[in-house]
Amino acid sequence: MTSAPLIHHVALLVADLDKAVARWSAATGYTFSEVARYRTDRYCDRRNPAPHHHDARISFSKEGPPYIELMEFHGSGTHGPDQGEGFHHLGFMDCPSPEDKMIELASLGIFDDGMALDDDDRILLWFTSKQDLNGMRLEFVSSDPQPIIRDDGSEPYRDVRGCPVLWPPEEQ
């Protein structure tokens, strides 16, 4: 019997990421990463199903799991201000086959609403529709490198596998 994956992070949408990092740090005593960006030109969601630009500013707590991910409003779809501040999703990392997981959940009546694709149209990450799980989304992230850059647009830190990460090597 295989065990269920553990929740890697709890993500919250915020209007102002810099203020949210300061407030959450003060309230929890947690340390948050430098601000980074999940930037891709291959994001799709129900509001805009054609691959389009997505540039979400993010920061993760060092404490966890589960970690806290703070994400600033972006665009008009799954990360837009009309979603409101607060809970956005529970994140599961290193999903071996996001495509298979999507098919599995669709058979249960849980559908997708948002995904990032690589250049070969493979899913890098995807979100379930919040309407299908009591107003909450799940996020499934593949083990493939994600399109993360530093907030100023420069190259990200990298882990031993060469994948982009939010923490400098000495803090990983």
Rank of each mutant, 00 (worst) to 15 (best):
E99H: 13
E85S: 07
E72S: 03
T78M: 05
F87R: 00
A106N: 15
S59P: 09
S61I: 12
L70R: 00
P81K: 14
P66I: 12
M115K: 15
I103L: 11
A116Y: 01
H74N: 08
G91C: 15
E85M: 05
F73S: 08
Q83L: 08
Q83M: 14
G77V: 09
I103Q: 11
F87L: 12
F60P: 03
D100R: 10
A106I: 03
M93S: 13
E72R: 04
T78K: 02
S59A: 15
H79C: 12
I103H: 07
G80Q: 07
E99R: 14
I58W: 07
E63S: 08
P96N: 03
M71S: 11
F73M: 08
S107C: 05
G114S: 09
G75S: 05
H89K: 03
E104C: 04
I68N: 04
I103R: 14
D100K: 11
I110M: 08
F87K: 01
E85P: 00
S61M: 12
E85N: 02
H89E: 06
L90A: 12
Y67T: 09
S59N: 10
G91M: 14
L105V: 04
M115P: 02
M102I: 10
E104H: 11
K101I: 09
E99G: 00
H74W: 14
E85F: 02
T78H: 02
G109H: 07
G64C: 07
K62L: 13
I110F: 01
S107V: 01
P98E: 05
G64I: 00
E99S: 13
Y67E: 07
M102G: 03
S107Y: 01
F87Y: 09
H89V: 06
D94E: 13
L108R: 14
P65C: 06
S107N: 12
G114P: 08
L105R: 10
E63T: 08
M115H: 12
G75V: 05
P96M: 00
G86C: 06
D112W: 06
G75A: 05
H79D: 03
L105Q: 07
A106P: 07
D100V: 01
G91L: 09
K101D: 00
P96Q: 02
